[in-house]
Simulated scan of single mutants.
Amino acid sequence: MVAALLFAVALPFAQSAQAQDSLPPAPYAYKQLADPQQEAKAQALMETLRCLKCQSQSIADSDAPMAGDMRHQVRMRIAAGEDPEAIRGWLIERYGDYVSYTPQVKPITWPLFGAPVVFLALAALLLRGRFRKGDRA
């Protein structure tokens, strides 16, 4: 009875996930732009953006439907003449900082960049004190 209840609860979620995967891909998900310079810009940008479903691949390498949609958005915006950094900003605004492989220093993230320096300095001070005590003996 518990298994039947779990199945009944999980069924709507499985159907919605299957529906998304069965949608046709966006037109520019797998089709390159006609202009080689624009395609090079799009490809360079896509290699620096993380697939939110795969998480270990860029959207340029991923076959996930969401990555295809993101590739389509990047190519459409590049074709419209938008700057790649503006596109990156739009995607970060939409999906969060995690979507970019290039971390940005912000007030909330500066400790992530500063903490290793502080720890290295503290370790150097401790080691320096340790070696100085060893020389005296």
Rank of each mutant, 00 (worst) to 15 (best):
M1G: 07
A4I: 13
L5F: 13
F7P: 00
A8S: 06
V9K: 05
L11M: 06
L11I: 06
F13V: 06
F13C: 04
A14N: 04
Q15W: 14
S16E: 08
A17D: 11
A17E: 10
Q18F: 15
Q18S: 14
A19N: 09
Q20Y: 15
Q20S: 15
Q20A: 15
P24S: 08
P24W: 08
P24N: 04
A29M: 06
Y30K: 15
Q32G: 13
D35G: 03
D35T: 08
Q38H: 13
E39T: 06
E39V: 05
K41I: 12
K41T: 11
K41M: 12
A42I: 04
L45G: 00
L45Y: 02
M46N: 03
L49D: 06
K53W: 03
C54L: 02
S62P: 03
S62Q: 05
D63N: 09
A64V: 11
G68N: 12
M70P: 01
M70R: 10
M70E: 09
M76Y: 13
R77P: 02
G81W: 00
A86V: 02
A86L: 04
R88N: 09
W90S: 11
W90L: 14
W90T: 13
W90D: 11
L91T: 07
L91D: 00
E93C: 07
R94Q: 08
R94Y: 11
V99N: 07
S100T: 01
T102R: 08
V105N: 07
V105D: 02
K106E: 01
P107D: 06
P107W: 09
P107T: 01
I108E: 10
I108K: 15
T109P: 00
F113A: 08
F113T: 06
G114D: 03
V118P: 00
V118L: 13
F119M: 05
L120H: 05
A121I: 10
A121G: 05
A124R: 01
L127I: 01
R128K: 05
R128M: 05
R128S: 06
K133V: 04
G134R: 07
